[in-house]
């Protein structure tokens, strides 16, 4: 039997394009996102469960839900 390791999915912000508007912060049910010094959004991967609400909300569509190697 082969065992498949489940890779968790998390929100990942393309920081080059983020405008730091904070829309994602407002919709995150786990309070996992914060705006770092008015420059960009930062996701706390320890809290993020990859629900995708932020990605849907982001006006610039710069948040991607992708598999991350823990």
């Amino acid at each position: 039997m082969t065992t498949t390791k489940r890779v968790p999915k998390k929100a990942s912000v393309s920081q080059r394009d983020c405008v730091a508007c904070g829309c994602c912060v407002k919709v995150c049910p786990l309070g996992a996102i914060s705006i770092d010094r008015g420059i960009q959004a930062v996701v706390d991967w320890a809290k993020c469960v990859g629900c995708g609400k932020c990605a849907r909300e982001c006006p610039a569509s710069v948040i991607e839900i992708r598999e991350v190697e823990g």
Binding site: V19, C21, G38, E57, P59
Partner: peptide
């Protein structure tokens, strides 16, 4: 046309305050 807060992307005040923060 796009997402509800699309204005936030090119809002001059938003761009300027981000620049100031940077």
């Amino acid at each position: 046309l796009f997402k509800p807060r699309s204005w936030c992307i090119y809002c001059p005040m938003g761009t300027m305050t981000q620049l100031i923060c940077k």
